[in-house]
Every structure is written in structure tokens, then in C-alpha cells.
Amino acid sequence: MRKLIVAATASCLVVLGLAVPSALGAMPTSNAKVVIIVGPVAGSTSFYKSDADAAAAEALKYTSNVVKVYTPTATWAAAKAALQGASIVIYMGHGNGWPSPYGPFQTYTKDGLGLNPSAGSDNSTTKYWGEYYLARDIRLAPNAIVLLHHLCYSAGNSEPGNADPTLSVAKQRVDNMAAGWLRTGARAVVAEVYNSGMWGGAAWYVRQLFTTSQTVDQMWRSNPNFNNHVLSFASARTSGYTAKMDPDGVNKAPFGRSIVGAAGLWTQEVTGTRTRIAATASQ
């Protein structure tokens, strides 16, 4: 009876034409470049580095092209050199987004990277390189994805201790934080504020990108921390792109998850995996 139920379920999926995430039939090999950047975050630095190391260890299972740029030597020069041609970018550090209490808005320091002002300075002093520099100086690989983890403002959230924003302000923060990265050639920007490791964090995303066949949107929705409170809106900053948020509440804070991306981007388009795909439903 159990076999009949499984077979019937698989048949329904085919008839209905549902898109079902698939697992790659063999361990994929890829030349995809993975760049992991950890900026100075004072007392949180060791935790961020540990979380980044978990993502790096996962990436090394599938590609040898993994580059780490960590504080206290995470300067703009080092980050800029490493980022060229990257297929997966992971950034953990301070977020300097907009709208925020620190006006006025300008693109030289907002919505980019918080890095060391000079190599070997310390793990606290931060210099911000905003979306202007991302758009001007960085060229990622075709179909690249950017994963922003633990950043203030990235998913619409505020800094710890500050009041939650309105939904309107949160939407602007999500849209602005993605804008510079999308001008580097990235096709999707994911922000996860609270998740870490294999529990929906960067390491989890790396595994999904290299070992499954699904759209990036499906991947984002399959995160173990998915709230099923998705709201969507057209990006005001990047024509043709759609932003989505998945707050803890329905259309309200806390805000901790977002994605801004092009429709129809698949995981194997990001990583360039070419191994045979076997549908999970038939296994």
C-alpha cells in the first residue's frame, strides 16, 4: 500500500505539472567561484567567522575555488580583487542601509560592504564602501547570487535596540540593499538576518545551490526558517526585478528574510553544475 501511495503521489505531481525541487543524482563538480567576506563586527567577529567557515567548508565539497576575505585584512582592495568573477558571494558584517537614522542618503557609503580601513587595523573600526563602488568596480559571474547574512537593514530590519520600521520603510531598505549588488551582474540577492550554519544560514544555502535543481525562489521558500508570510513588490531601484519579504508577522515586523531577484533563475545556473538530475519524487 505504501508503494502505491508513493507512486500515486508522484503521478499527481507529473499530471499537475508542479515544479518539484530535485536532488542531483551524483556529487556535482563545479568551477564556480565562492567568495566569503567577513567584516569587522567587534564582539560578534568570532561568531561571524565561525559561521563563514562553515559555509566555506560546505563550498569546498563542490568546488576548489573558494576565497575567504576576513577581518582584520578585509580591505576594499582585497574584497574588490576577490569578488571579480564570483558566482556565489557571502557577506557577513555591518550593514549601513537606507532609510536609517544616519542621513542623508548617498551611494558612497550606503548599501555596500563594511570593511577594514587598512589591513591589520582591528576588528572594530569599519569603513563603508557603498553601492556606488560595487556598481563601478565589481563584475560578478553571469547568474551570480549574493547572500547577505546578519546585516542590519538588509531584510528591512533595524539595528538591535531600535524600533522596528513600518512596512513601507522596510521595503525601501530591502530594495536599496540589493540595488548595488544587482549592478555588479548578480541576478539575486538574499538577506537572512538571524539564520546561521545549516539551519537556514549561509552553509545551508551553499548546499542547496550545489546539490539541488530548483529555482532560487523555491530554494528561498524551502529554508527551514520560512514563515509563509511572503509579500512581493516590484523593485523601484532595479527595473524588471521583484522583491519578496517573509516577515515573522503578516505584513509586519519583525523583518528578517528577503530576496530580490530575476524570475526563473535556477540553482544549477548559478553554480554551473552539469550532473544528471534525478527527481526527488521518484527516489
Rank of each mutant, 00 (worst) to 15 (best):
205 Y>D: 14
179 A>N: 11
224 P>M: 02
183 R>G: 09
26 A>S: 15
199 W>K: 15
130 G>S: 03
62 Y>N: 02
138 I>D: 06
31 N>F: 05
102 Y>S: 08
273 T>M: 03
262 A>R: 14
58 E>I: 00
101 P>W: 06
217 D>C: 08
20 V>E: 08
203 A>P: 07
144 A>D: 02
69 V>T: 02
72 P>K: 12
28 P>K: 00
120 G>N: 01
121 S>Y: 11
9 T>M: 14
66 V>K: 08
161 G>D: 07
258 S>D: 03
121 S>T: 13
140 L>V: 10
168 S>Q: 15
158 S>N: 11
185 G>I: 00
137 D>E: 11
51 D>A: 12
200 G>V: 03
29 T>M: 11
134 L>M: 11
178 A>D: 04
135 A>R: 12
243 A>T: 12
124 S>H: 10
186 A>E: 01
185 G>E: 01
57 A>W: 04
210 F>W: 05
108 Y>T: 12
275 T>Q: 12
89 V>A: 01
149 H>Y: 14
193 V>Y: 13
194 Y>H: 13
23 A>H: 13
121 S>D: 15
273 T>E: 07
100 S>C: 01
91 Y>Q: 07
197 G>Q: 06
56 A>S: 15
189 V>W: 03
157 N>T: 04
38 V>A: 07
141 A>F: 00
39 G>C: 02
89 V>K: 02
280 T>P: 07
274 R>W: 07
88 I>H: 03
179 A>P: 06
72 P>F: 07
178 A>T: 08
31 N>S: 12
253 A>M: 00
66 V>L: 05
86 A>V: 08
280 T>V: 10
220 W>R: 10
226 F>E: 13
